[in-house]
């Protein structure tokens, strides 16, 4: 008898699994991009941000791919949660990420120094059925499930730009030259659209270890540290011409997060991450 009940129950559950997959946000942690009229604030401290409702997203240590976080000084990643807000005006979309970090690590002034950073992760494709793996996408060349990653790095903030090597991301305005790597000669930089627009890198990945800078750098941003808190905004036009970019329109998307604490020697996969959360664009 018991067996029968279990069987029937199981079939019901299985039906649920096969045809109606579990709701992505089993905890109801949804990010909503609030529609506003007027300009998107390019300052993380702008009062306009008060219009958006924040949500706290819990983060965990990245322990899926090596190198894992167990070998960090703390034995785990530092940041356990972030507060996320988003605004859009139909033309541009911006995200404000805030988290506690008692130490500002924004200068790579030592061979053993690491920076604070934050990244947003989006599936490039709009398909709701065939979502890339939240950890850097998947499929590599055979079956690419591309993700678009926007990474803000503290050391790329204004006034902290360093020499720009070939193949690095390029600070946008005014720079025409870079220094050739080994020959010590000046090199022409790529055209402006390929240069980084701010302290944010526009990247793609199709699996662990595949993160690559895009030819077209479209994301802008600004980060401010004060009182043990980072406030970082990342913003971009909702649509771009780049096929490798995520495109935003009213409706649903997925978003995932990652934060690095330089003081805990976090870099690469040694970071705090979340899985996919639903992003509703109003």
């Amino acid at each position: 008898m018991l067996k029968k009940v279990f069987l029937i129950g199981s079939i019901v559950i299985m039906a649920g699994i096969l045809y109606n997959l579990p709701e992505v946000n089993s905890q109801g942690l949804m990010v909503t991009s609030k529609f506003i009229k007027g300009d998107i604030p390019a300052n993380p401290r702008s009062p306009i941000w008060d219009k958006a409702d924040g949500i706290t997203i819990p983060l965990s240590s990245q322990i899926i791919a090596q190198p894992r976080t167990f070998t960090l000084p703390k034995g785990r990643s530092s940041v356990r949660g972030i507060n996320v807000k988003s605004l859009n005006n139909g033309k541009d979309i911006a995200f404000l990420i805030e988290w506690d970090d008692m130490t500002e690590n924004s200068i790579l002034d030592d061979t053993a120094a690491y920076r604070d950073a934050v990244a947003l992760n989006f599936p490039v494709s709009d398909s709701e059925k065939d979502v890339p793996y939240f950890g850097m996408g998947h499929g590599e060349k055979e079956d690419p499930h591309l993700v678009n990653i926007w990474q803000w790095k503290a050391d790329l903030e204004d006034g902290r730009d360093r020499v720009v090597p070939l193949g690095a991301s390029y600070p946008g305005e005014g720079l025409k030259y870079s220094v050739d790597w080994y020959q010590g000669q000046l090199y022409n930089l790529p055209p402006k659209e390929k240069q980084r627009k701010g302290p944010v890198e526009d990247l793609n990945a199709v699996g662990f270890g595949t993160l690559t800078l895009q030819d077209s750098q479209d994301v802008m941003g600004k980060g401010v540290w004060s009182g043990g808190k980072w406030r970082v905004i990342l913003y971009r036009p909702m649509t771009t011409k780049d096929k490798e970019d995520v495109q935003f329109k009213k409706g649903k998307k997925y978003i995932a997060f990652a934060v690095w604490d330089g003081a805990n020697l976090e870099k690469d996969g040694q970071k705090s991450i979340s899985t996919w959360h639903e992003l509703t664009i109003e």
């Binding site: 559950i13 649920g16 699994i17 045809y19 997959l21 709701e128 059925k129 065939d130 979502v131």
Partner: peptide, 13 residues
């Protein structure tokens, strides 16, 4: 899974 049943239009993969 139960929740998934309620929200029938949501098919992740």
């Amino acid at each position: 899974a139960e929740k998934g049943k309620q929200v029938k239009e949501k098919q992740v993969r």
